[in-house]
Write a protein that binds this DNA or RNA. Structure first.
Length: 414
RNA sequence: GCGACCGUAGCUCAGUUGGUUAGAGCGCUGGUUUGUGGUACCAGAGGUCGGGGGUUCAAGACCCCUCGGUCGCCCCA
């Protein structure tokens, strides 16, 4: 009989367990706590959307839509896509549920996203993000609130060290269009010196030449026209209000005039929290204002701003969260298994995380229990035919230990 | 989509210019010792060397294809 080949996990997906899973859960739990502090409502959204949700909002020509989406025809013949990002789906939900009545809305989501990309450090085909958006708020105060929340989140995760907030403005529509035209003209004049990748970008996404990594492009990109010279008075005031708000909140930032967004719907504020600890995937949290998106989906002109952060990337930066067992019980004689189980049940009902070691070589159960690394260790054994017990603990206050000792003592002696 | 490196036991790895029954540590199971916050020792289980094809008297080692991993490019969180 031919041996069956065990199927493998799909490329770029992960089975998270142990410390990896604990780090991941810690990031999500911290986000859930912080977003409540800022009054952001939670959302649960479908993982699948009509393909048009993304093709209309992101643009057919973008790499995400043209070559990275998991799209398929369902049994009814509709084109369905596994969401590659959150923002478009949130905007769709906002429109199809008539949430304009609640505007401005502060929303948060987290969950899996899917992109068909080559896996590398901090990048997967099924990856996970936390996401926060404010829809229907045109004021710079909304941008500031989101950034202050992001800053607090990173601080509470303990990863703000070595992470810097880079900030830029893309201006309002007239400013952005004028700047873009100037850039295209400038880069066309320097076509001969640009890298091959940047020549392609010149056709598809000229702003992206500004943050090219190719050393060949750097001198040209660094000398390119800057947005500041094209900003309308209104756009200037907007950006000034954002930076003033950040300063007032004590959030450190640096201006990065080369920071752009790939997607056309972005306006005004663009930002990234960047680290040097994740190799090529330096952006840990990024976002901006996308006043054009909801119109792209056929809705009314609606201002909005938001950010997203990769949970896997944050989890890699976070210190290993210590999830310690409260109590472990080493049952060193088989005749005491029922008593051990009774203690275990009592402890758990009293709110302690507890486990018992009752299997394997009786003589080695103590060693196994030690390996559980619990705060308190009970060993129960037979002493001249009578049940007895010993306790070891570390970093445990006497007033916490006393009732537990009593509980064990009562059960052993009854 | 492009490039580089890698794939031997559950895990981390060794395996000399191709050459007998493929090894170690950890982990696991059992035993002896110790009666202790990770004792020491003994024994055991566990591998179609990622998969397929080729070269050769002989392939874990060499070649080709393929699948996966890692790190870059592109793109992006």
């Amino acid at each position: 009989m031919a041996k069956i080949q065990t199927p493998q996990a799909v490329r770029g997906t992960q089975d998270m367990f142990g410390e990896t899973e604990e780090r991941f859960a810690h990031v999500v739990a911290t986000f859930e706590r912080v977003r409540r502090l800022y009054g952001f409502k939670g959302l649960q959204l479908p993982v699948i959307e009509p393909t048009a949700v993304f093709s209309r909002s992101l643009g057919e020509a973008t790499d995400v839509v043209s070559k990275e989406m998991y799209s398929f025809e369902d049994r009814g013949g509709d084109s369905i896509t596994l969401r590659p990002e959150f923002t478009a789906g949130i905007a769709r939900a906002y429109l199809t549920n008539g949430w304009q009545q609640f505007a401005p809305m502060k929303l948060s989501v987290h969950g899996p996203l899917f992109r068909y990309e080559r896996p590398q450090k901090g990048r997967y085909r099924q990856f996970h993000q936390i996401d926060a958006e404010i829809i229907g708020a045109a004021e710079p105060a909304a941008d500031v609130e989101l950034l202050v929340m992001a800053d607090q989140l990173l601080k509470e995760l303990g990863i703000n060290d070595g992470v810097t907030l880079q900030l830029n403005t893309l201006g309002d529509t007239p400013s952005r269009d004028a700047w873009r035209a100037a850039l295209v003209g400038y880069f066309n004049d320097h076509k001969g010196a640009l890298s091959e990748d940047s020549l392609a970008r010149l056709e598809k996404n000229p702003l992206r030449i500004l943050d090219s990594k190719d050393p060949k492009d750097r001198p040209i990109a660094d000398a390119a026209p800057v947005i500041d010279d094209y900003l309308s008075g209104e756009a200037q005031d907007f950006f000034g209000a954002v930076t003033a708000g950040l300063d007032a909140a004590g959030v450190a930032w640096t201006r990065n005039a080369a920071l752009v967004r790939g997607l056309d719907y972005y306006r005004h504020t663009a930002f990234e929290f960047v680290t040097d600890r994740l190799g090529a995937q330096g952006t840990v949290l990024g976002g901006g204002r996308y006043d054009g998106l909801i119109e792209n989906l056929g809705g009314p002109a609606t201002p909005a701003v938001g950010w997203a952060a990769g949970i896997e990337r944050l989890a890699m930066l976070v210190d290993s969260p210590a999830e310690r067992l409260d109590v472990v019980i080493a049952v060193e004689d088989d005749s005491l298994v029922l008593k051990g189980t009774a203690i275990l049940i009592a402890l758990r009902r009293a709110g302690f995380a507890a486990e018992a070691v009752t299997t394997g070589s009786p003589r080695k159960r103590y060693d196994k229990a030690v390996a559980k690394n619990a705060r308190i260790l009970f060993a129960i054994q037979l002493d001249q035919g009578n049940p007895s017990w010993t306790v070891r603990s570390k970093e445990v206050q006497a007033d916490e230990l006393a009732p537990i000792r009593q509980m064990v003592s009562d059960i052993i002696s009854r």
